[in-house]
């Protein structure tokens, strides 16, 4: 690791005072499961690390009649174990899939959402865009994006929690740059595809940070997450999908379907949503929704298999949300 200075503020205000407006100057440290490895490999080389580990106001889960406020420094384990997750099965399932126990105990909600891409070109110091996309296009892109990959960025969004949170219509609370500044935005708006190496995978300015995730009351919606993984080991999924649906009289009235690991951002599938709304959820309609989702896929040279996986993930997330058998191996 490059030497850096360390600060451990106690309040959100102190955090903002320590963050620099210059990209790359400061890094925000949460659980450490991603950032410490990135710093050891000199992929990330901040001059200052601001640890959020002693900011107690970021560690609470508060529920009222309309929403649940989850602090960014709540650990994944504590969120999944919280009784409030009875109402949000997609969250509990997504976290339950994450190996290992130490990752769940150490990793935080905010850190999970802001982790950097797993793209091996990025992790090989060839840049977030991997030499303006060329390294991905010409190289081994088996784990890269199958949607939204026509720009320079072709990595796949790594968060395993984001698809569930987006399906559940979660918002994030962003603080800064000045003390008192506060922005609430839908989580899907928080992410954006970077167009240059100067940008990141989200819209956060370097002197802003995520303080909270806000989950609306489910109002009768049912939800589920489904991950396709290679084997049973502690690997990232190849493709993931989450669905949240409002079903009355056996008919889907509203749906939100988001995929992970398939695009440079978590990917909301408008096509899948349109395919399922107005119909009951059964094997045929869920399969048709999966088919609709991948109708706009644009796979790279080595990842066409992900198209089939994405189709199946959407189908099974819908079936699981409806409490139906998903088929396949459990």
């Amino acid at each position: 690791m490059k030497a850096f200075e360390y600060a451990s503020p106690r309040t959100e205000r102190e955090v903002l005072e320590l963050l620099s407006a210059d990209r790359g100057h400061t890094e925000i440290l949460a659980g450490g499961t991603d950032l410490i490895g990135l710093m050891k490999k000199m992929i990330v080389k901040p001059d200052r690390v601001v640890s959020l580990n002693r900011v107690d106001s970021l560690k609470t889960i508060d529920a009222n009649s309309t929403a649940v406020h989850v602090g960014a420094m709540v650990t994944l384990e504590d969120l999944a174990d919280n009784p409030i997750c009875e109402f949000y099965p997609a969250i509990r399932q997504a976290i339950g899939e994450m190996a290992s126990q130490q990752l769940r105990a150490q990793g935080t909600v905010g850190g999970e959402l802001c982790q950097r891409p797993r793209c091996w070109f990025f992790r090989d110091k060839r840049g977030l865009l991997a030499e303006r996309g060329r390294a991905v296009e010409e190289g081994d892109n088996r784990f890269h994006a199958i949607f939204g990959n026509r720009g320079l960025a072709k990595f796949s969004a790594p968060s395993r929690l984001a698809p569930a949170l987006i399906a559940l219509d979660a918002r994030v609370r962003i603080l800064g740059p000045n003390p008192g500044d506060e922005t609430l935005m839908p989580l899907e708006v928080f992410y954006r595809t970077p167009k240059s190496e100067r940008e990141r995978e989200h819209t956060l300015e370097p002197n802003q940070f995520v303080s909270q995730v806000i989950l609306p009351h489910p109002e009768g919606r049912v939800s589920a997450s489904y991950e396709v993984r290679h084997g049973m080991g502690p690997e990232y999924p190849l493709v993931a999908a989450a669905a949240s649906v409002l079903v009355t009289g056996g008919i889907v009235r509203e749906a939100r379907i988001a995929l992970g690991q398939v695009a440079p951002t978590p990917w909301i599938s408008r096509e899948a949503i349109d395919a399922i709304v107005g119909l009951p959820i059964n094997y045929e309609t869920a399969e048709a929704a999966g088919q609709a989702a991948v109708s706009v896929a644009s796979p790279l040279s080595h990842n066409e298999y992900k198209v089939q996986l994405a189709k199946v993930a959407v189908k099974r997330a819908l079936l699981k949300a409806a409490g139906l058998e998903t088929g396949g191996l459990s």
Binding site: Y6, L29, T33, G37, S51, Q106
Partner: peptide, 25 residues
């Protein structure tokens, strides 16, 4: 990066990869 679990210790009773946390924290 903690992928092996070889550096596990308990921190406040929670399993933690000692190689992905800063001593000062």
């Amino acid at each position: 990066d903690g992928a092996s679990g070889g550096s596990l210790v308990l921190v406040d009773d929670k399993p933690t990869s000692a190689n992905t946390v800063l001593a000062m924290d």
